[in-house]
Write a protein that binds this DNA or RNA. Structure first.
Lengths: 192, 192, 192, 192
DNA sequence: TATGAATGAGCATTCATTCAT
DNA sequence: CATGAATGAATGCTCATTCAT
């Protein structure tokens, strides 16, 4: 990577970081492009060299962050040993929940879009994301269910987890995440 | 209700209807207050007599419409006879799905907000909403599970349904609702 | 005064008091007619039965309050005995200063308008105001100066007092009123 | 100064001039930002690049114009020769009066703000302003009065002059400036 | 490539005033 | 006399986007 390339990447990253920080702390609606570039320390025009508009950078951030959470979760899961698939999956889900609980601002931003990462760009780019899919498929290796069906179940479990996290952690509705977690786990156990 | 009271209610309703129509067709972001009042046929200041700002009327619309969907679903369900609780619940869920499929614009508006928050608020105001809860509790009458636990399961089923509807119907991700529905139904069957 | 007349006067007074309170605490610019009527507990239309607009009631308030200060000052002065005119005038001036110091909000409102404009209008309406003029003229009874000339000097002393009070009490520029007062008194002594 | 810097200064100046002209002819209250930018021939956003709001530009104009009057007065005074301090001071005051009489619109704008607040601010920025202070202090060099006391007397003379100018020239109360001037001069003579 | 001054359409919001009740 | 719902012109201000440097 040439020096110029490096510099470009650096500018893009600083815009990215600035936007993430402002979106999470001030809210999307209250963050203007001018705020982002000021915080990033670059010129206003520079923003448009890297992103189309506010929602372009926002989408990229959400995608990136959700993918990151999922890939971290699978990485940690893969490093452990489990007696069975159920334990493995629940460890994976628990990792996600605990991560989001610790980073409420990120959870607020990705809202209920946590399953997105799997089905979009990330699926293609990140090696780790393949693994979650593989893990899930392996867990069902003895069943007669089709690969497609199993994929959809994974999708639903992730949607459910994302939704429950948002409700329980951000809104604390109907109850906080600590009370919700056992029910969620039991439900997932039933699903698989 | 006096003539003046009637007139007020009429004004509020026309604003409400105009806003709903514009939000669903043009999008929230692209709808200005001036559009709403023009369509409603009232003065601009009148809007502020009834609503604080665009998001105030939006919230009211989302709450209202979501409540309506749920209450319609329970009403229709109660009118039918079922052999067992599972069939009853799935009919209820199916009614919601089909309703949202037919009214994609409304689904887009209520996004993934068809859930507990709404449910809880609606619970206080609408008699019908009590029934869904009763129905669900009755279905579990022979189980040893606590009422609380059962309530949380209902919450999760609603969250899951809402999330899946939005993804499948609006984004068609990972697949359309027709392909998704059997998997969702099977999943709900396992949950209960 | 009939009961109806009394009621009218009462409404006018409550508007007057509400406006005075809001003008002094929130500022003229930030006070709307709707604020005034809300505080006064009357209908919006009622305001226009008694006043032309915001500046109409403001002018009346300023006139009224400034007149009150001056008339109070002369009343108190007349009740005392003095060895000479100089002492009498300085007592009068001091009374004004101390009054304004205690009611900074009123001083802020009447700004630097404590002077001839007010004085002149008040002259016609309030018996007490005649007395200050008389007092001042008497003080000069042995001089060869014309009545007109003496009137102008009184005007200047009042202008100077008003200006100094505003600067010293409100802005504390160049110094506070305590430091300023001896200089002002010495200056007035030289003038007369 | 680069071309771009020059252009910026030009824009600011045209806004400044436009605002001054509109404030003096139409009044502050009746001048909208849109009027200013239209007259200045710049975009609306440009205004907010240079000024916070209407009162920001107004304050700057008042400060600037008042400073200009004072600095002009001292410049002219310094160019003349005088037999004594009294003549010098009265020439200085007279210059101010005549200037304001010729430019009534400016006088109306700066109202009764021609005084210490302005003086103090200007003191830092304008070399000429130092001179008026020096002149005044020199006039008292043989007196036993403290520098502080003398400064306060200067302050009062300026306040008095400003107040009298506004009343006599703008309101013509209690009489016009021609009739008032001899009394003012005589009063100042007595003060010093 | 990078900048940031300039733009002006677009928007939310206010508020004095009216007038039917 | 009193009201307060309705109005809509008026206005301040924002902000995404452009483009000359």
């Amino acid at each position: 990577m040439s020096k110029i390339e490096k510099n470009k990447k650096q500018k893009e990253n600083s815009l990215y970081d600035a936007a993430y920080h402002l979106f999470t702390t001030k809210g999307i609606h209250n963050t203007a492009i001018s705020d982002i570039v000021k915080k990033a320390g670059v010129g206003k025009g520079t923003f448009y060299l890297y992103f189309k508009n506010k929602y372009d950078i926002l989408d990229k951030i959400i995608l990136d962050k959700s993918t990151y959470v999922l890939s971290e979760a699978i990485k940690q899961t893969k490093e452990k040993e489990f007696n069975n698939f159920e334990d493995e999956l629940l460890y994976f889900i628990d990792y996600i929940i605990e991560y989001l609980r610790k980073d409420r601002l990120m959870l607020k931003l990705i809202h209920k879009n946590l399953s997105w990462g799997i089905f979009k760009k990330a699926y293609k780019d990140y090696e780790e994301i393949h693994e979650i899919y593989s893990m899930f498929q392996s867990g069902y290796k003895n069943s007669s269910l089709s690969r497609d069906y199993i994929g959809k179940v994974l999708f639903m479990i992730l949607e459910l987890t994302g939704s429950v996290c948002y409700s329980s952690i951000i809104l604390e509705e109907p109850v906080g995440i600590d009370e919700m977690k056992p029910v969620l786990f039991q439900t997932i156990r039933k699903i698989i």
